[in-house]
């Protein structure tokens, strides 16, 4: 069975400079029915005004991934990293024993639009680390491009996370089809980043999500205008 999480049902907070939609409980949005899915704890869709952002704040024991859809973000942290990145890049920060960082829209004129994802780590107190991997957008056209994979696995050019979870991005044109087999005992979360897609006959729009655990075969078909989605393979 596929469970749908509609975009309009998400938590929402608009602070003017920051417009956020929360797939799971976060900050002032709390819904005990939506605390996460497996190790996936947070998917926030944020739109940030030019030049604005999140001031210095701390994280501990969390795998924090950022995936920019439009614009750019400038990241600065207590490990000494100062990086600006845009679309077609996966940024992963393993907070481990503790990290302090800030994130700002790197542009003075263009709004920023991105997904921020938190995955609970399987091990605590790891040494904090920062990874940023850019890729050619063709690598996600019509196929799943691995963005993040379990540390120590054979993952090629993907970020490592301290959890038995893999994260992919895929872009599908209108009517284009893509299939995925879910291994026994695994669970999938599909987050529509852009456009429209049909997953096993269920139509999903931008911001919608689907959870699957029992269904082994997942079929994705790009809707009118195509789509970009993130696919989470979780224990």
């Amino acid at each position: 069975m596929i469970t749908i999480r509609r975009s309009a049902e998400r938590g929402h907070a608009d602070q003017g400079w920051l417009n956020s939609y929360y797939t799971f409980s976060f900050a002032s949005y709390y819904d005990p029915a939506h605390m996460g899915f497996r190790a996936l704890r947070v998917i926030n869709e944020d739109r940030i005004a030019p030049g604005r952002g999140f001031g210095a704040h701390a994280h501990r024991d969390m795998e924090i991934m950022t995936y920019v859809l439009e614009g750019s973000l400038t990241h600065r942290d207590s490990m000494g990293e100062i990086q600006t990145f845009g679309a077609n890049t996966i940024q992963v920060m393993s907070a481990g024993t503790g990290v302090i960082h800030s994130e700002f829209n790197g542009s003075e004129g263009e709004p920023g639009h991105f997904l921020q994802i938190w995955i609970e780590p399987a091990v605590l107190d790891v040494e904090p680390s920062y990874q940023q991997i850019s890729f050619d957008p063709q690598e996600k056209r019509g196929r799943f491009r691995l963005l993040a994979a379990p540390a120590g696995s054979d993952h090629g050019e993907a970020a490592e996370i301290h959890q038995d979870a893999s994260v992919y991005a895929a872009e599908l044109g209108s009517g284009e089809n893509l299939n995925r087999t879910l291994a026994p005992g695994r669970h999938a979360w599909v987050q529509v980043a852009r456009g429209n897609v049909t997953v096993n006959g269920e139509a999903l729009g931008e911001g919608d999500a689907a959870a699957a655990g029992d269904e082994r075969e997942l079929s994705f078909t790009g809707g009118p205008g195509g789509c970009e989605l993130l696919y989470f393979d979780l224990a």
């Binding site: 001031g55 210095a56 704040h57 701390a58 501990r60 207590s78 024993t97 503790g98 990290v99 302090i100």
Partner: peptide
């Protein structure tokens, strides 16, 4: 200040800078 805040976080504190 960031180093002190980091030390506090490592000791499992909540911090405000």
């Amino acid at each position: 200040a960031l180093a002190a805040a980091l030390g506090a976080v490592q000791a499992r504190a909540n911090i405000r800078l």
